[in-house]
Design a protein around this nucleic acid. Structure first.
Length: 428
RNA sequence: GUGAGCGUAGCUCAACUGGUUAGAGCUCUGGACUGUGGAUCCAGUGGUUGGGGGUUCAAGUCCCCUCGCUCACCCCA
């Protein structure tokens, strides 16, 4: 049996790469406008880092790819990037720099889950993190930036889901209250939720089982039990978004499956995507840096699922992905003409023109067929006859028309060709 | 981790209730056309029917196991 990719991981072949690059370029150029710089963090870290940040008992914690290296160190492929960014921030004492610290990252994440539409074991995320700023205006700016990003990609139908899950001060109180409430009804909860009661009561809130829903309906709302500071923060975020003209849905049951979130949490969903419809998730994590051994530092961030974003863009039948740039195929027919061919290829490339040349020595027909398949705008033919006459033949692959170019006017010709290629991007 | 559906050529799919040597279209290669690609026609290459085991005179077809894909649950990106 031939060796294939492991379950849930994929090759990204050249015809797909240009789409990824296009999205990545759009992201980085937009994020730069907002003052973000790129960071590259390791693909694996000490497992402890993730276990402490996302939480051992959370789903993400359980989905980690943990392994031991040759010295028996416990390592893990990163299931997400926020913890690493916070770690880097602390490790390099970046809190000693003035102002907030804004970074973005692009790269693969790994989670051991059952693959599904829009869910892979290795998937790519584009994300940003801001450390050192607690103001609700920042929450608004961050959400506004993602929306701006999706708009710039031409994505129209997305929804912003918003919630506040309180802070270290008010959440414990609320969880206590919630526990008291569920305790009275624990027998009507599903088995999964009965376990959740022990380690994560909040999760019961978005259980979709009908029996649980019934109980949840009458459960106390978190928004009614936020402390004064959290309440004010949340109000300012909502008002800020409204001022920016950003529509959002309040989802009181939006509970993110990572332990470190505080206050604002949000998700951006696309209705057409099916079950895995979230293309972006994020929120505030004011306690994380301290939790990881740094000074108290507020933080906020989000991450975008690139594969899901691509599915959404393709579903919208958006054919705005960039085409391959057109080029030239140089055909030579014997030893002498091949020598001239090499010279010509180098000249054209030095002018910035994408150029192929076949080394196969095939006949003219098959070389032209190859040129056709490469989708080039022009073929240049040099054979015995052309060498003797010191010319080359330039063939327009679309019209089939061809003309002779004198060898001594090559310089002028290649300049001209470059100009024409730049103008006719869609000749194929 | 749970459930359901599906695995036949590189791709898309055939093969009646088990019955000769598993077919077709597209792609690919070659030819018609030895210095002119795309169109047409002709020919050819290509398969351990995902893998393993079982039932049977006989298995692509039925049964079991396994791997993978797909979708959903779960959860998220």
């Amino acid at each position: 049996m031939m060796i294939q990719t492991p379950r849930g991981v994929e090759d990204i072949l050249p015809h797909q790469i240009s789409k990824y690059q296009w999205i990545e370029k759009k992201a980085s150029s937009l994020f730069h406008l907002y003052g973000y710089e790129e960071i590259r963090i390791p693909t694996f870290e000490n497992a402890e880092l993730f276990l402490r940040s996302v939480g051992k008992e959370t789903d993400v914690g359980k989905q980690m790819y943990i392994f031991k290296d040759k010295k028996g160190r416990n390592l893990s492929l990163r299931p997400e990037a926020t913890a690493s960014v916070a770690r880097a921030y602390i490790q390099h004492r970046l809190y000693e720099k003035p102002g907030d610290w804004r970074v973005y990252y692009i790269g693969p994440m790994f989670r051991y889950e059952r693959p599904q539409a829009g869910r892979l074991r290795e998937f790519r995320q584009i994300g940003v993190e801001v450390l050192g700023e607690a103001a609700p205006q920042l929450d608004v700016e961050v959400i506004e930036m993602v929306c701006q990003f999706f708009k710039r990609l031409g994505l129209a139908n997305f929804n912003v889901q918003l919630n506040s899950i309180g802070c270290k001060k008010c959440r414990p109180d609320y969880e206590k209250r919630l526990k008291e409430y569920f305790k009275r009804n624990i027998s009507s909860l599903c088995p999964v939720c009965q376990k959740r009661y022990e380690y994560n009561v909040l999760r019961i809130l978005d259980c979709k089982k009908e029996s649980c829903q019934k109980v949840v309906e009458k459960a106390p709302f978190l928004k009614d039990h936020l402390c004064e500071d959290c309440k004010i923060h949340f109000e300012k975020v909502k008002m800020g978004l409204e001022d920016m003209g950003i529509k959002f849905n309040l989802d009181p049951y939006l509970v993110r499956g990572l332990d470190y979130y505080t206050r604002t949490t949000f998700e951006i969903t696309i209705p057409s995507l099916g079950a895995q419809n979230a293309i972006c998730g994020g929120g505030r994590y004011d306690g994380l840096v301290k939790e990881l051994g740094g000074p108290y530092t507020p933080g906020i961030g989000f991450s975008i699922g690139v594969e899901r974003l691509l599915i959404a863009l393709e579903k919208d039948e958006m054919n705005f992905f960039p085409k391959n740039s057109p080029g030239v195929y140089v055909i030579t027919l014997d030893k002498k003409s091949q020598k001239m061919g090499y010279y010509l290829v180098n000249l054209l490339r030095s002018k910035g023109i994408k150029t192929w040349m076949s080394f196969s020595g095939d006949n003219l027909s098959s070389q032209l067929r190859l040129a056709n398949r490469k989708g080039v705008c022009w073929a240049i033919i040099i054979g015995e006859e052309e060498v003797n006459k010191e010319i080359l033949i330039l063939k327009d692959m679309e019209s089939g028309k061809q003309r002779e170019i004198e060898w001594r006017r090559l310089e002028e010709f290649s300049q001209n060709l470059n100009f024409q290629l730049k103008r006719s991007r869609d000749c194929d």
